[in-house]
Amino acid sequence: MWQLEIGLEAAAVAVGASIAAVVWVADPWRWLLAGGAILACVTVAVVVPVWRYRVHRWEVSATAVYTQRGWWARERRIAPMSRVQTVDFAQGVLARVFGLATVTVTTASAAGPLQIEGLDRTTALALVDELTRKADLVEGDAT
């Protein structure tokens, strides 16, 4: 899915860049630059999703949720179950085609939610169930 998403983005950038190159740059450099731009975009489109996929992981223990995502800048987030406020389940158009889903766990902090992307639908639903059940067991208003 990431392959496709990024592929689409990269294709758009590549087309844009090569048009720009063709329009503005003087003749001898024109095709070279356009070619370079396309090559760069293709590389990005191939490398980044694989990289991202290899980085992306998640874990749920009895008391906490853990996610790791990103590629160049990598972010690991940990939230204790007692502070979980909402658990969201979302499926975009592309995700539905592939039967995938994203689970988002938010806490009361403005510093950002924990997102688990590209789970297959059944796993995601089971995860949502599990998280909701565990978060429910804890008393208090999670702040």
Binding site: G70, R74, E75, R76, I78, T107, A108, S109, A111
Partner: peptide
């Protein structure tokens, strides 16, 4: 109410990480 550990490629090479303790008030 949680931890965010963030590191770019350069930071990982240097064995460093940016740490944020998240909370429900202030800047979060």
């Amino acid at each position: 109410i949680g931890w965010n550990l963030r590191a770019t490629w350069f930071q990982r090479r240097a064995g460093l990480v940016s740490v944020a303790a998240t909370t429900a008030g202030g800047k979060g």
